[in-house]
C-alpha cells in the first residue's frame, strides 16, 4: 500500500534519507549524476510522500497519478524515491548501473514504477502531454507530474510541448523545473541563458509558480495551488542548489556527472546524518 502522507518535518527527514541513498548508490556505481539528483530531491520527495496517488504493489493501477522524470540522468533520485515508497527492495539500489540490473544508468521500464524510459533530454513534457490527454479522453481524474531540468529546456522539443500543453488546456498536468542554474559545461546563464524564465512560460500560456525548491512548505503549497488552476497547465519553477545537502558538492559543476570517491562519499554521508 501507499505510505501515509508525511508532515513537513518528516518530509525533510525522508529527503535526507533519499539524499543518503543517492550519494551511496552513485559512489558504489562509480559513475552517475549526483548534482541534479540532490537539487531535485525535495520537490520529488514531497510529491511521492505527500501528493501522488499510487500503489507500489500494483505499479500500473489505472487510477495512479503519473510521474515522469524527463531529466533521466537523475535516475538515482527516482530509484531512491521508488525504493523508499515500496516499489522494490532498497537493497536493489546498490546495483545501480551494473550489468543485468533493473536500475539502468538512465531510467527504463525494467524498474517497477518507471513507465516510460528517459535519458535523451527534452521529450518528457511531451510524454506527460500524452498522459494528460489520455486522462481527458478516458474521463479519469489522475494528475500528471513531469520533472524537467533547467539545462534540458534548451531542447526545442520542450517548447513544442509547452505550446501544445497550453493549446490543449492540460490543467491536469504540472511540470516541475529544477532550476539549479548549472549544466554540464557551466552556469546556464553562461552556456545558454534561460531568462526571463517565468515570463517565457507565462507567454506560452502556462500558470507559473516560482518557489524556493528546498522549502517543503513552499513546495507543498505550490502543488496545492497547481491543482486549483483551470484550463491551463502549471509549471513550478523550483529555485534550487545543485548538489544540495553536501557542502563540497553544492554549486560545483564538476558534480553534475561525476561520482564521489569513497572518501568523498563517506564525508557526504556524514554531513547527511
Amino acid at each position: 500500500m501507499q505510505p501515509d502522507n508525511l508532515k513537513i518535518k518528516e518530509l525533510e527527514q525522508k529527503a535526507k534519507q533519499i539524499r543518503r541513498n543517492i550519494v551511496a548508490m552513485i559512489a558504489k556505481a562509480g559513475s552517475g549524476h549526483p548534482g541534479g539528483s540532490l537539487s531535485a530531491t525535495d520537490a520529488v520527495t514531497a510529491l511521492f510522500f505527500s501528493e501522488l496517488r499510487y500503489k507500489p504493489d500494483a505499479p500500473l493501477w489505472p487510477g495512479r497519478d503519473r510521474f515522469h522524470m524527463s531529466k533521466g540522468h537523475c535516475a538515482p533520485l527516482w530509484y531512491s524515491v521508488l525504493a523508499e515508497a515500496g516499489f522494490f527492495p532498497k537493497e536493489k539500489l546498490m546495483t545501480l548501473r551494473q550489468l543485468g540490473s533493473m536500475l539502468q544508468g538512465h531510467p527504463d521500464r525494467r524498474t517497477p514504477g518507471v513507465e516510460v524510459a528517459s535519458g535523451s533530454l527534452g521529450q518528457g513534457l511531451s510524454v506527460g502531454l500524452g498522459m494528460s490527454l489520455a486522462a481527458k479522453i478516458d474521463k479519469m481524474d489522475y494528475r500528471v507530474y513531469i520533472l524537467m531540468g533547467d539545462g534540458e529546456i534548451q531542447e526545442g522539443n520542450i517548447w513544442e510541448a509547452a505550446m501544445a500543453c497550453s493549446h490543449y488546456k492540460c490543467d491536469n498536468l504540472c511540470a516541475i523545473l529544477d532550476y539549479n542554474g548549472f549544466q554540464i559545461d557551466g552556469k546556464t546563464c553562461a552556456v545558454m541563458n534561460l531568462e526571463p524564465l517565468k515570463d517565457k512560460w507565462l507567454a506560452f500560456g502556462w500558470h507559473a509558480i516560482l518557489i524556493d525548491g528546498h522549502n517543503m512548505k513552499e513546495i507543498l503549497s505550490a502543488y496545492a495551488e497547481a491543482k486549483t488552476v483551470k484550463d491551463k497547465p502549471t509549471i513550478i519553477i523550483a529555485k534550487t542548489t545543485k548538489g544540495k545537502g553536501v557542502s563540497f558538492m553544492e554549486n560545483v559543476c564538476d558534480f553534475h556527472g561525476r561520482a564521489p570517491t569513497k572518501e568523498e562519499a563517506e564525508k557526504a554521508l556524514e554531513e547527511l546524518k
Binding site: 511531451s126 500524452g130 498522459m131 494528460s132 478516458d138 526545442g156 513544442e160 505550446m163 501544445a164 490543449y168
Partner: peptide, 25 residues
C-alpha cells in the same frame, strides 16, 4: 475527440504518442 493535431512539431507529436501508449492507447 480522438484526433489531435500538434501543428508543425513532429518531435513533440512523436514523444506524445509514447505518453498516450503508456496509458493503453
Amino acid at each position: 475527440e480522438r484526433f489531435f493535431n500538434f501543428g508543425v512539431a513532429e518531435q513533440n507529436m512523436m514523444a506524445t504518442s509514447a505518453g498516450f501508449a503508456s496509458c493503453g492507447k
